[in-house]
C-alpha cells in the first residue's frame, strides 16, 4: 500500500519532469525543471529499494539519508524562491533569502549535520528508524536529526502560504488559482509533517500520506500554473482592452437559474 503510494508519487514527479524537459532544453525557466527533477530524485531516494542500493554504494552509513535531506532543502528553497517571486508577496523573498532566511537555513543545516555525525548511523535503514544501534542516546540524536530535516520545508511552506492562499482567492486565471490552491495544500502538508512524530503508533503510517501530499502538492501545483500559461498562449485573450471590457453579455452569460 505504502510502496504503491510512493511509486505513484515518483511516477507523477518523473512524468512532470519529463514533460518539462523540452522547454528546459530550449532554455525556458530551467529552475522550474530543476524543481521537478530534484523532487523526482528526492522521492526516488526515499523509496526503500532505491535507498538500499544507493546507500550501499555510499558505504551503508545512511549518507543517502543525509543527501536526501539536502536535496529536499534545495528543492523547497528553489521552489519557494520562484513561487515567492511569482506571487509577488513583498515579505516572502526576504524571509527565504534575506538574513533571516539564510540564518534559518544555516541553523537547520547545522542541526541536521551535527546530530548525524554524532550518531552511530551504521547499517542501511530507510528513514533511519531501524538502524542497528538502538541505544537511547543514539535514538535521541536520530530523532533530533529527523525533526531538523522536517523543519526547513515547514519554514518555507509557512512563508509561502499567505502568498498562495492570497492568489487562490484572487481573480487570476482559473488554472493559476487552482495551482495556488494545490500548492497551498502541499504547503499545509509540509507544515503538518513537523508534527508527524507526535502521531500515536498505529497512525504512524499517515506520515507517508502527508509527505506524498506535500510533494504532489508542490509538483502538481506548479504543473497547473505552467498549464495555465500553455492554455493562455493558445487562447486569444491575453491583454485586457477597451473592446474587451465593452463586450455585451451573450445569452450564455445569463445565469441559468431555473424555474
Amino acid at each position: 500500500m505504502i510502496s504503491a503510494l510512493q511509486w505513484s508519487t515518483l511516477f507523477v514527479c518523473a512524468l512532470v519532469a519529463l514533460f518539462r524537459t523540452p522547454s528546459a532544453l530550449r532554455g525556458e525557466n530551467r529552475s522550474l525543471f530543476g524543481v521537478f527533477a530534484l523532487a523526482t530524485f528526492a522521492v526516488m531516494l526515499s523509496i526503500e529499494s532505491n535507498y538500499t542500493v544507493i546507500d550501499a554504494w555510499l558505504g551503508s552509513h545512511n549518507y543517502a539519508n543525509l543527501l536526501l535531506r539536502f536535496v529536499i532543502y534545495g528543492t523547497v528553497l528553489l521552489a519557494g524562491y520562484k513561487i515567492a517571486r511569482g506571487f509577488g508577496h513583498p515579505t516572502t523573498v526576504p524571509l527565504l533569502l534575506g538574513p533571516v532566511g539564510l540564518s534559518v537555513l544555516a541553523v537547520i543545516a547545522l542541526a541536521t549535520i551535527v546530530p548525524f555525525l554524532m550518531a552511530n548511523t551504521a547499517g542501511t535503514s530507510v528513514g533511519m528508524a531501524a538502524i542497528p544501534d538502538q541505544s537511547e542516546d543514539n535514538r535521541q540524536l536520530i530523532r533530533l536529526y529527523t525533526a531538523a530535516g522536517r523543519l526547513y520545508p515547514a519554514y518555507v511552506a509557512g512563508c509561502l502560504l499567505p502568498a498562495t492562499v492570497g492568489a487562490m482567492r484572487s481573480r487570476l486565471p482559473g488554472l493559476v488559482r487552482s495551482g495556488a490552491a494545490v500548492l497551498s495544500v502541499g504547503a499545509a502538508a509540509m507544515i503538518l509533517l513537523v508534527f508527524g512524530e507526535l502521531l500515536p503508533g498505529p497512525l504512524v503510517f499517515l506520515q507517508y500520506f502527508i509527505s506524498s501530499t506535500a510533494v504532489l502538492g508542490l509538483v502538481a501545483g506548479l504543473a497547473l500554473i505552467w498549464l495555465g500559461r500553455v492554455a493562455a498562449r493558445r487562447g486569444s485573450r491575453n491583454y485586457p482592452s477597451l473592446a474587451d471590457a465593452h463586450r455585451a453579455p451573450g445569452q450564455e452569460n445569463i445565469a441559468a437559474e431555473e424555474l
Binding site: L32, K82, G86, G88, L172, L222, I225, G228
Partner: peptide
C-alpha cells in the same frame, strides 16, 4: 499573471 508565469510558467 505575467509575473507568475515569468517565474513559474
Amino acid at each position: 499573471t505575467e509575473k507568475i508565469w515569468e517565474n513559474l510558467g
